[in-house]
């Protein structure tokens, strides 16, 4: 097991910033998912940890500095397993040759055991071109584990497989990571993938860390509107924060936030808004549909679409009144932009 300490990490592509400054501390044996929209710097962060992308700042793995202004440890010496988004398999090598090249000390017996663990038993002679999408991902995982790494980095590992296989591979990854006591860092823009594989979440936007914390905390008590929208599927209705003690929202006034230097939004988590005859806000029903957890309706709430439970009485085109369970929540819309402006 190995901890990852990142301090003041900055990465560039050409002359433009991609990542940072970024500080992160990931405990040994933790399972962390870095999530965020495309182009936010997730993969670059992973590549910096692996030593595949030059970064300014300090990176320490298990207390050992691998990246600082004076010392850069090459990728092969960091004992890191990496599963690339596109697999990065070597098309001219067989499955067995992948493992023997990745880890010269791995014996035939150990290689066969590893292949059996990832579900590739009997496929040692196949080449990547002969493997299915799921098998190719399993091979990428086996190759990453072959060198006995202390940290496993996964770049959208379930991106290219179908829904049924995602579940299987997710379970397999979790099992292997637990069995080997690895520190896992996963990069994805898929919330479900992140929640399935990780306990800790890091939300990244425009190269900056917006929020970190346990999955439960970030889901239930998001600290930014973006985090709430991205992670919990919240609907964000911009509100005006002026000098007053309270902020007016469609669901009533809320105390004004202390930090008024950036735009704020009323954050409505799924399930927080319910249809109620005496509700303070009027909304229009756009559509009704069935979902796994019961019937639902999509409503237009002042130009913002959101789902509410449907008890069977809602009809398309009708107007209903909605209310909020609990107190309204106003959160900053983009802390990274706020920091940049500061």
């Amino acid at each position: 097991m190995s901890s990852i300490e990142i301090q003041n990490l900055v990465a560039r592509h050409g002359s433009g910033f991609v990542l940072g400054p970024c500080d992160l501390s990931l405990a040994a044996g933790s399972r962390t998912a870095v999530i965020g929209p495309s182009g936010c710097g997730k993969t670059t962060l992973l590549r910096c940890i692996a030593g595949l992308h030059p970064g300014e700042g300090r990176i320490a793995l298990d207390g050992q500095l691998v990246n600082d202004p004076k010392r850069i440890v090459p990728p092969s010496a960091r004992r890191i397993g990496f599963v690339f988004q596109d697999g990065g398999l070597w098309p001219h090598l067989s499955v067995a040759e992948h493992l023997s090249f990745a880890s010269p000390g791995l014996g035939t017996q150990a290689a066969e055991e590893l292949l059996a663990q990832v579900g590739l038993a009997g496929r040692s002679r196949a080449r990547p071109g002969e493997l299915s999408g799921g098998e190719a991902q399993r091979l990428a995982l086996a190759r990453a584990l072959a060198g006995d790494p202390r940290i496993l980095l996964l770049d959208e590992p379930l991106h290219s497989v179908d829904t049924a296989l995602r579940g299987q591979l997710g379970v397999l990854i979790r099992k292997l990571v637990d069995a080997r006591g690895l520190t896992l860092v996963l990069v994805t823009h898929d919330r479900d993938e992140a929640l399935a594989l990780a306990d800790q979440l890091v939300i990244l936007k425009s190269g900056k860390v917006l929020e970190t914390g346990s999955a439960d905390t970030l889901l239930q008590q998001p600290r930014t509107a973006f985090g709430a929208a991205f992670l919990a599927g919240a609907t964000c209705v911009p509100v005006s924060v002026n000098g007053g003690a309270t902020v007016a929202t469609p669901f009533g006034p809320v105390p004004s936030p202390a930090d008024r230097s950036c735009p704020h939004a009323l954050v409505l988590l799924p399930g927080e808004v319910v249809v109620r005859g005496d509700g303070p806000v009027e909304a229009r029903v756009l559509s009704v549909f069935g979902a796994a957890d019961g019937a639902r309706a999509l409503i237009d709430l002042g130009g913002h679409a959101m789902q509410v439970p449907n008890d069977g009485t809602l009809r398309i085109g009708t107007t209903v009144r909605v209310a909020l369970r609990g107190a309204p929540r106003v959160l900053p819309m983009d802390r990274s932009e706020q920091e940049a402006n500061a």
Partner: peptide
């Protein structure tokens, strides 16, 4: 890059 990570 995958080759770079190998112990070769």
């Amino acid at each position: 890059e995958a080759a770079q990570l190998s112990a070769r």
